[in-house]
Nucleic acid binder design. Structure first.
Length: 489
RNA sequence: GGUCGGUUGGCCGAGUGGCUAGGCAGAGGUCUGCAAAACCUUCCACGGCGGUUCGAAUCCGCCACUGACCUCCA
């Protein structure tokens, strides 16, 4: 299978032609959420970025196995090796079983992803469900002598590893500098060096989640789950590993070290990292406390928000920026996206009703090609969207009778728009509910507006305006057209 | 302090050594009973200083500002 998809590989820091190991199969692993709190706007970025990749690879004809994990154990609160387990802490504070916390936030994460039209991954493994695999992984590393036991815990020997491999190749870190600058924290006497990281941690008595292992009753280190589960489901070598830029170091660097140590070779060909969403120029994140959850965005219930923003406008907002750029949040920016999204989708819907002529005065021939070229260039969704707006311009011109389109062009345009808008960008018209009640309600509004048309025909402007004004006050948008009227809520 | 990035018009945000990004907002116009929508036209730009070049916002250097990572973070 041939393709012209070029993606930016963090390893090497340049764009590379994407060549899968076993075409038409593609293995894709993305770091998923730690389920101890609601997903915020920042979580939407990798989800949508790699959903875009997943969709596009699928569009190109690849059979993609997309693994996105749920981190429900081993992710510690403060220092990577010393703090409290995030899920465990939440469970203790709320007096719940840890798995209740996990289930609750996993469900809510799924709800949010659903709303954003993020396709579910092929496999969504839980770290807690792969303790055995992780223990086996630790054993392999111990066998190579690149890890050591200390008081029931196992640590990765970074310095020893670095003698034959390059620890820091992904993030551009220099180990000597790391040795100097890594903070020495209390309770780290077990480690030989501060740069060493935990593969297995012996659990304190108050620790809620722990499993038996050859070394101690304990739990796996955070970096381990991705190595173990990636290997299990995608093989010793797979195509793409993705995640947020903030995970590059230490998380992904440690993954490379673990996999290289255990398997004897690197396991990932392409590393992809999405950039951060910022708010007032600063990263939106848990630690800064400046995050807005997706639910708050959907409902508008956050002091910083001037209004609610629909899931699709959030998706559109994210797709309007390239995934490797920072994206700055503001009400103004989101409102602009929201309006732009409406314009795009109005045009898309209008397209379905267009009638063709014998010839075209609009040029839509290259749209498909130009959209693919943009996607092939490291998933340049903003360019795709710019092309789609050009198409909307043409659609509107035809709609207004200022241009014509041939039957062939119309068919092609419809197909291209569907592919780009729905299949690749994953945008959909919102609130498509088709039950009897909705139908009745639509008919009722149509009836009201028909009465208004009659009043207009009699030049009874007072009645006509009255109906329109009252509907507008209720939040409807009423438009008169040549044929009659259009409305939407 | 170290590593890596960014600095584009009122806002968000692409891109390229010479040719319109796009969206939102603003201005004028067409259409309309009035609106709305749509369409047309239009304003506003590439941090500063040097250098390379016939030509640089795009390449190089210096400076300024700013961000991310170096501790959990998508």
């Amino acid at each position: 299978m041939e393709n012209k998809l070029v993606i930016y590989n963090t390893l090497g820091r340049k764009k590379e032609l994407f060549i899968p190991i076993h075409a038409p199969h593609v293995g894709l692993y993305v770091c998923g959420p730690t389920v101890y709190g609601d997903a915020h706007l920042g979580h939407a970025r990798p989800a949508i970025t790699f959903d875009l990749l997943f969709r596009y690879l699928t569009h190109l004809g690849y059979k993609v196995r997309y693994v996105r994990n749920i981190t429900d154990v081993g992710h510690l609160e403060n220092d990577a090796d010393e703090g409290e387990d995030k899920v465990g802490k939440k469970a203790r504070v709320e007096q719940l079983e840890p798995m209740e916390v996990v289930q609750y936030y996993t469900n809510r994460y799924h709800d949010s992803m659903n709303a954003l039209n993020v396709l579910p991954p092929s496999i969504e493994p839980h770290a807690s469900g792969h303790i055995i695999e992780q223990i086996e992984f630790v054993k392999k590393i111990l066998d190579t002598g690149l890890a050591y036991e200390s008081e029931g815990s196992i640590y990765f020997d970074v310095e020893k590893y670095n003698q034959h491999h390059h620890y820091g190749k992904l993030s551009g870190r220099n180990i000597d500098e790391l040795m100097e600058s890594t903070r020495s924290l209390e309770g780290q006497q077990e480690k030989r060096r501060p740069v060493d990281f935990a593969l297995w941690k012996k659990a304190n008595p108050e620790h809620l989640m722990h499993w038996p292992s050859p070394w101690s009753e304990g739990f796996p280190g955070w970096h381990l789950e991705c190595s173990a589960m990636g290997t299990k489901y995608l093989g010793e070598t797979f195509d793409i590993h993705g995640g947020g830029m903030d995970l590059m170091f230490p998380h992904h660097e440690c993954e490379i070290a673990q996999s290289t140590a255990a398997l004897g070779h690197e396991s990932v060909n392409y590393w992809m990292h999405n950039n951060m969403i910022t708010i007032n120029g600063q990263k939106m994140g848990k630690s800064l406390g400046n995050f807005i959850t997706l639910e708050e965005l959907f409902t508008g219930s956050h002091p910083l928000l001037q209004q609610a923003f629909s899931p699709m406008s959030i998706r559109f907002f994210i797709l309007q920026a390239h995934y490797r750029s920072t994206l700055d949040f503001s009400n103004e920016a989101l409102q602009a996206s929201s309006k732009g999204f409406s314009r795009l989708m109005d045009g898309y819907q209008r397209l379905q009703k267009l009638t063709s002529s014998t010839s075209s005065t609009v040029d839509v021939a290259n749209l498909r090609q130009r959209c693919e070229e943009a996607m092939n260039d490291d998933l340049n969704s903003p360019i795709v969207i710019a092309h789609l707006f050009e198409a909307v311009k043409a659609i509107n011109a035809v709609h207004d009778g200022l241009a014509t389109i041939s039957a062939n062009d119309l068919t092609e345009l419809k197909a291209t728009m569907k592919t780009s808008v729905e299949d690749i960008l994953g945008l959909q018209t919102e609130q498509v509910v088709n039950d009897e009640k909705t139908e009745a309600y639509h008919k009722a509004i149509d009836l009201l507006l028909s009465l208004r048309m009659e009043a207009k025909a009699k030049k009874d402007w007072e009645t006509a305006d009255n109906i329109r004004n009252q509907l507008t006050a209720l939040g409807f948008e009423v438009k008169d057209t040549k044929e009659g009227f259009e409305w939407k809520l």
